[in-house]
């Protein structure tokens, strides 16, 4: 088990490297570097910059170094000192800006993941066991619909409905009086009141996908001989299904974190922009539009790392759940 754990972590290293290269590539993508952007914006506001100062800044940021060296400086800064570079739009180090936002992204994603599991597990089992029943058809239909509605359209629709019929605006994670307040039961309750819309919006497509996967897997498992064996022992139908096929069909369910999590983080990004949540998404978009590339790159890097960790966790959970993986 420990060997397996170690192997998984080692396998992550090259992927992690790849993700950091992609993030750095995106930082470098817009024409010019961020000093040129800085100059442009200063010129807009009528300021001028001393050429000597400019040269000094170029040297500090290593803007004239070869690409590989620049990448090395950037990534070593992050790994060794937690220095993600400087956001010129905010005039602050990136590291001061991102952690709150990433924390919120993570919490909303986790909440959505819990929602996805809690909803899809019972419906998936029901659908597989009562195949072609009315309930199954209803679930399948909503599953297809859930897969077909893009997150942001669902978010807009829910916003419109709640605005029109409940007369309230549903953006954000907190009501104005709780923003920045200390944690209290009231604040938690307020968070819950706001969280359900983003969670439903983000979780719907994942739920639909998982229901389909669980239904297909469980249908396969239900026809396996070991199910007949379990019945032949004299177990009741409920126990037969829960202890045997469901136990095995759970494996794809757990490994689903691996691909549901990137999907959820993607979903949070765009949904957050529509619903104006204090997560990474809106800030990332703003950074991208204003070409505040170190900030944007850091977000992309961290989101990538987050999904990798999610995959690692799912692999480990799967190994715990399935002895066949643990022993090979």
């Amino acid at each position: 088990m420990w060997g397996y754990f170690l192997k998984r972590i080692l396998l992550m290293v090259p992927t992690m490297f790849g993700i950091s290269v992609i993030s750095f590539f995106i930082i470098q993508l817009p024409p010019g570097d961020y000093l040129t952007s800085l100059l442009a914006s200063m010129a807009d506001s009528g300021q001028t910059v001393d050429p000597a100062e400019l040269a000094r800044m170029r040297a500090t940021y290593g803007l004239d170094d070869p690409m590989a060296l620049q990448y090395f400086k950037w990534i070593s800064g992050i790994v060794l000192r937690g220095d993600f570079g400087y956001s010129f739009e905010w005039g602050r180090p990136v590291s001061e800006l991102i952690w709150d936002r990433m924390g919120a992204t993570l919490s909303v994603s986790m909440a959505a993941l819990v929602f996805v599991w809690a909803v899809s597990l019972p419906i998936g089992i029901y659908s597989a066991v009562r195949r072609h029943s009315i309930g199954d058809h209803v679930a399948t239909f909503f599953g297809f619909l859930g897969l077909a509605i893009p997150n942001f359209i669902l978010a807009l629709t829910l916003m419109y409905i709640s605005y029109k019929y409940f007369g309230q605006s549903v953006g954000g994670l907190f009501s104005p009086e709780y923003v920045g307040a200390d944690w209290s039961w009231g604040r938690v309750w307020d968070l819950m009141k706001h969280l359900w819309i983003p969670v439903i919006v983000i979780g719907t497509s994942g739920t639909a996908a998982l229901i389909r996967i669980l239904r297909a897997n469980l249908t396969d498992e239900l026809s396996k001989p070991y199910v007949v064996t379990a019945r032949a022992k004299g177990l009741s139908e409920y126990k037969v299904i829960m202890r045997y096929p469901v136990r095995i069909a759970l494996n794809p369910f757990v490994s689903a974190i691996g691909w549901v999590l990137p999907q959820l983080i993607s979903g949070v990004t765009i949904t957050a922009i529509v619903l104006n949540l204090p997560t990474a998404g809106p800030l990332l978009l703003r950074a991208l539009v204003s070409q505040d590339m170190y900030l944007a790159g850091s977000f992309i890097l961290l989101m990538g790392v987050l999904t990798l960790i999610g995959m690692l966790v799912s692999d480990l959970l799967l190994a715990l759940l399935d002895p066949r993986i643990r022993f090979t």
Binding site: K224, P225, Y226, V228, T229, A230, R231, A232, K233, G234, Y244, R247, I248, L321, D322, P323, R324
Partner: peptide, 19 residues
């Protein structure tokens, strides 16, 4: 089932739960 009549099958691998 199991109490008065026992059953064994052809495929011993797939007739027992692997997990």
């Amino acid at each position: 089932r199991g109490g008065r009549i026992g059953l064994i099958f052809q495929e011993p691998m797939s007739s027992l739960s692997p997990v």
